[in-house]
């Protein structure tokens, strides 16, 4: 068993089976690098995950600890100097499993909790969790207006009116897509 500590003061600690905790690539790598130390006795502090978020993470990894490992696909780095052709293959369809649908904090007032969860999944490199979370956000955004998306993602419109007008012209063709 591995102990994980939240960033709260005082920290809240969770005890998780090693197999489950290794769904996080970040922690898995760390445990591998620290091979030889008795990690069962050493709580691992996670300075950027708060207790409610860590609780969700722990719940998720425990539920999914027996999942078959995801197929690793090399990430296409975005490099304009790269001569190779863009990858044609579309991402495989991500389907959110029933359990995860109930698990994800999907109420509107829990929106920020969802973002915190995705942040944590990103830092801890839990790709399947990140995928389903992002898929959920994408479904939510899909078909919505720019204003709605801006509000939903807590983003500021930082364009000047002139820039906005120019951009509008640039992407006018998208209407025809």
């Amino acid at each position: 068993m591995i102990q994980l500590c939240s960033n709260d003061d005082p920290p809240v600690s969770f005890t998780v089976p090693r197999k489950a905790v290794e769904l996080s690539k970040t922690i898995k790598t760390m445990l591998e690098d620290l091979e030889g130390f008795d990690m069962e006795q050493t709580p691992i502090p996670l300075p950027n995950v708060d207790a409610p978020t860590l609780e969700l993470i722990v719940k998720w990894v425990e539920q999914h600890q027996d999942d078959p490992p995801p197929v690793e696909k090399p990430r296409v780095e975005d490099d304009d100097s790269d001569d190779s052709d863009a990858d044609d293959d579309q991402e495989p369809e991500v389907v959110i499993p029933e359990w995860d649908k109930k698990f994800l904090p999907t109420d509107d007032e829990q929106k920020n909790q969802l973002f915190k969860l995705l942040n944590a999944a990103n830092y801890l490199e839990i790709k399947p969790l990140l995928d389903i979370g992002c898929k959920y956000v994408a479904d939510k955004i899909s078909g919505q207006t720019v204003e709605w998306v801006r509000d939903y993602l807590n983003m500021e419109n930082d364009y000047t009116p002139e820039e906005e007008a120019k951009l509008k012209e640039e992407i006018a063709w998208a209407e025809g897509l």
């Binding site: 973002f115 942040n119 956000v137 720019v146 419109n157 951009l167 992407i171």
Partner: peptide, 26 residues
């Protein structure tokens, strides 16, 4: 706010038409 990687992933799930329009967001 979501960092880049999750946002990128979100965009990948959207239809092309909307991705183009989302350039307006910020």
């Amino acid at each position: 706010q979501l960092p880049d990687r999750p946002l990128e992933q979100v965009l990948r799930f959207l239809p092309a038409r909307q991705v183009a329009q989302m350039r307006h967001v910020s």
